[in-house]
Design a protein around this nucleic acid. Structure first.
Lengths: 338, 338
DNA sequence: TTGAAAGCGCTACCAT
DNA sequence: ATGGTAGCGCTTTCAA
């Protein structure tokens, strides 16, 4: 029996008789044999993609996002074609260097990027590479054709939220963005502002990177006579902070102040009161990421021979993931005067 | 110039003149050339290890643990010798299959396992493989010589905690273990029980896997006349749950009931009151994991030719990571009658 | 339908 | 100190 026959069998190619194929599979199983990744990659190029996480905020409440995302991506990926590995870097620059290096070493066939920052070093690096990439949580202008994008439907999410708050009677609403270095919060606060326009409400926006700066910005805001009656944050941690500042100022939540977290998470029901929140369908985002990854690798020009079936043609474009219904909990109520 | 010279240069071996070496490095840099991982692995075996996470509880507050761990491990690993990839599986069985497969495919040279369960399928699978492994958070009896263990110094942590509660005046203390399927909580509650013995206090232990069961077990416990005056949990989420149940029963925390989280996390200061907690030095745990990984690969018999310098000899044994000082916040006070 | 053989890009041994 | 070269274990083309 020649090695070619075995190779054909294992790669499911035609030209092997049913009996031979069965025998090959049986013997391989008995011997516990599997083709060596390295040898296969040497011939055919890497069959793995990497998600490089910028992990500069350890212990963060949403830090598990990448794992949830991968968990979802696996559902649309199937472990046999492409594996998706998660790696950790301490900074965008570090992540950029890793991706550059691993692309040059032909270690990975594609990259996934999340938590995109303003002027993100990772995107700059990826541009110089002809690497397929999936950008999660942001749409990059003038992106190479080999990139795919996956974003949440913030428009819908914040339309729901805007309607909810406006119909409770709120008129003075502010948004506390967690970090203006991240692209997503900026886009999301714009989406909320747009959603409030029909109600004639002008969103006030407070920037605050890190808990200290956010708290510092928050205190004068909540002490003023025309203080907002509702505050929307970008994440659970900032919402918790708002709760804390409000408590210290003697403001009762939700009676004197409504608080909404822009990103639902388990921490949102550990607080007192539990936090009304914008859903965060990470798993679905992951499934979309898996599809986008296949699409990115399907881009003929960018192929590095992953096991993608060429006859499948161009995969459907990646896209916008719907969010579910707003999750109403204890932190929201009509404003005091209502 | 021959390929051998280039290989020698890049692997820092002697036998290359300084001028040649410099020229090689310069040209490689100009060309943006790096040795292909696949070809190198084909010759020398894989130069990567994998941490396969069992991610069956998405959105969990401590779900980011693996990323924090890797972040720490990178500090003692140096990216050039060994890379550490994180992968996700939905169950211990799935993780076991992945590791088995990837070992057979010679994709990874070693594996890291965290969140060990009782009768963990991953450990069973690893036993059948001659793969080097690092077990984080548990010490396995009769482990193969190629395994290393990394655990927290729970003895110290709970000695501190026991002394703290006892000296506040607490005499009726209970522990709510998050999940009895996990090995660590069981060991930790034993450590707490031991720490309370010198004070003549007998720890009551309540098992409860998942929030519903824990809540169900908690209500009668906290309604009884001889209810505990202090409750220790294994994680932040369960501590939050205790806070919630106490509130519904009209028990004031910390006046009527003290609550301690067995695992500090950002969620611990989002609660009201913020939670006194046992420190959780994940980063240090990660550094120890990195060292353990080198030691595991250093085990001569298990070598699959990772770039470990043989002259370094056997690395120091992996071990027990010290925890810091107990973090006292608002959820603990002397018991009511004191 | 099967077999033979040429690489893929390295590392390491043996010559020079 | 440097060059030649035999594999590592696959995939794929070409013959039989």
């Amino acid at each position: 029996m020649s090695t070619a026959v075995v190779s054909y069998t294992l790669n499911g190619r035609s030209g092997v008789s049913a009996t031979t194929r069965e025998r090959v599979l049986r013997v391989a199983d008995e011997l516990g044999w599997r083709p060596a990744t390295a040898a296969r990659s040497l011939r055919s190029g890497p069959a793995a993609a990497a998600l490089v996480v910028v992990h500069d905020q350890p212990f963060g409440t949403r830090a598990a996002f990448p794992l949830d995302l991968v968990s979802g991506a696996l559902q649309t990926l199937g472990p046999d074609t492409l594996t998706l590995a998660v790696h950790v870097a301490e900074s965008p620059t570090g992540a950029a260097q890793l991706m550059d290096r691993w692309w040059t070493e032909r270690r990975y066939a594609a990259f996934v990027v999340t938590g995109v920052r303003v002027d993100d070093a990772r995107l700059a690096a990826l541009r110089t590479l002809p690497a397929p990439a999936v950008v999660v949580g942001a749409v990059v202008d003038g992106a190479p054709a080999t990139w795919q994008h996956v974003v949440l439907d913030d428009g819908d999410a914040f339309a729901q939220l805007g309607a909810f708050l406006a119909e409770l009677g709120h008129r003075r609403i502010a948004m506390v963005a967690g970090s203006e270095r991240l692209v997503a919060p900026v886009r999301r606060s714009a989406a909320l502002a747009a959603a409030l326009v029909p109600y004639g409400i002008e969103l006030r926006t407070v920037a605050g990177d890190g808990p200290e700066r956010a708290a510092a910005a928050l205190r004068p805001l909540l002490s003023a006579s025309d203080r907002p009656t509702a505050i929307v944050t970008d994440d659970d941690a900032t919402a918790g902070l708002v709760l804390d500042v409000a408590r210290r100022l003697g403001l009762g939540v939700p009676w004197d102040l409504s608080v909404v977290a822009g990103t639902d998470s388990p921490a949102c029901y550990l607080t007192t009161p539990s936090l009304t929140a914008v859903p965060y369908p990470v798993e679905e985002l992951g499934r979309a990421t898996g599809r986008a990854l296949r699409a990115a690798l399907g881009t003929a020009a960018s192929r590095r021979a992953v096991g993608v079936d060429p006859t499948e043609g161009e995969a459907p474009p990646s896209g916008t993931v719907p969010v579910g219904r707003l999750v109403v909990r204890g932190s929201t109520a009509p404003p005091a005067g209502n």
